[in-house]
Design a protein around this nucleic acid. Structure first.
Lengths: 203, 203
DNA sequence: GTAATGTTTAACCATTTGGTTAAATTATTT
DNA sequence: AAATAATTTAACCAAATGGTTAAACATTAC
């Protein structure tokens, strides 16, 4: 049944996501994925023939449906540079926070399969150069001080992603293991990061 | 022979480091580590009984000898907040750049063994609170604008670590796969990150 | 109701991999 | 030279794991 089909496939994908993220591809066990999905190994292979194929699917979903399209579109839509930075930080921190597994997943993938993600990004039509150009333009117009615009972009991305990727390190060290405190902290970051950057680059 | 002993043990540790970082613990193969070290599997087990023990050794070295002691001492020595930020960024970017495997290694470890690293940090006597307090003091003195000092610290760490961890993603996207360009970029970051922060928080 | 599809069970296979062992060889020490 | 330690070779084992298969059962479609 189509209805049931989707449900099971969804269940599998979510389970696979969880396990692949927690354990990494190599350490992830098909049995555990099946268990997490509430089905058995045979059915798991019935839907996704191999571990590789399953991983491929998960990766594809994470990248194509969660990361690429939504995130960077903002950069095209927003006119003002400062508003753009705000939108970006707000949305990016939000997405990452909702899917805290993404950064690690992506970072791990990057290092084991360097070309795949960068190709995906490069082929996605994401106008990185346009973003860079936008910063450049703002510099030329005297709105922000002059620096390598890539530094700004890297700073922005770093500050959005890292705190989530390093969550398990920050939690005990900075937040006494209080998850609510950490959540509040991340919530504040949505505006904080943008303000931090704007404060730094505005003239 | 003591001389040879150290050499072989060193070779093994370096090889293990390389492989563990590139592949992650689970995907790392003892055979590959042996090959990388230029020895055979039997000798590998002769020195380090098991994969777990070997990993433990590598992790211990990375954390204790490379990360913890050197990095944060600066924070105690430097008087001026701005100088402190400069020293920190300079040193941190430098260390990470020299050992670009560290961030991923640590991040992976964090997520598979959440307590170990944070315990290490907490038990290392590193005065995180003092760092926070230093920012706080600078705020009280009206030297920097008021924010959650943890935000500053997290920003600092994020901007130092992330660009290296995401190296393989940034390289093709922002630097046309030019390693020299990327290296220049990171070299500049040593001062750039500090300036970026100071510019943002100074009054 | 019957065919098709989804799902379970459970046994099974092939491969990979961590780890061992024992014997032979080479280098070091004393 | 003799003893000791380092290193290699190569065969081997046990466990884990990805993946298969076939038969039975359940559910849904037509």
């Amino acid at each position: 049944m189509t209805e049931q089909d989707l449900k099971t496939e969804e269940k599998i994908l979510e389970a696979a996501m969880t396990v692949f993220i927690q354990k990494g591809k190599a350490a992830a066990r098909m049995q555990e994925i099946a268990d997490t999905a509430g089905i058995n190994k045979a059915l798991l292979h019935y839907y996704y023939r191999s571990k590789d194929k399953l991983y491929e699917s998960v990766f594809s979903i994470v990248i194509k449906q969660l990361l690429l399209p939504k995130i960077f579109k903002i950069l095209q839509e927003e006119e003002d540079v400062f508003a753009l930075i705000h939108q970006f930080a707000d949305f990016y921190v939000g997405v990452i926070n909702k899917n805290p597994f993404i950064p690690l997943f992506v970072i791990e993938e990057i290092n084991k399969n360097p070309n795949r993600l960068s190709n995906a990004v490069l082929n996605s039509g994401i106008p990185i150069e346009q973003v860079i150009a936008r910063f450049q333009k703002a510099m030329d117009e005297g709105k922000i001080r002059k620096t390598d615009p890539r530094q700004i972009l890297v700073n922005l991305i770093s500050m959005c992603i890292f705190p989530v990727a390093a969550r398990n390190m920050l939690l005990p060290i900075l937040f006494n293991n209080s998850k609510t405190e950490y959540k509040k902290f991340l919530e504040l970051r949505k505006t904080e990061v943008a303000e931090f950057i704007i404060q730094s680059i505005k003239i």
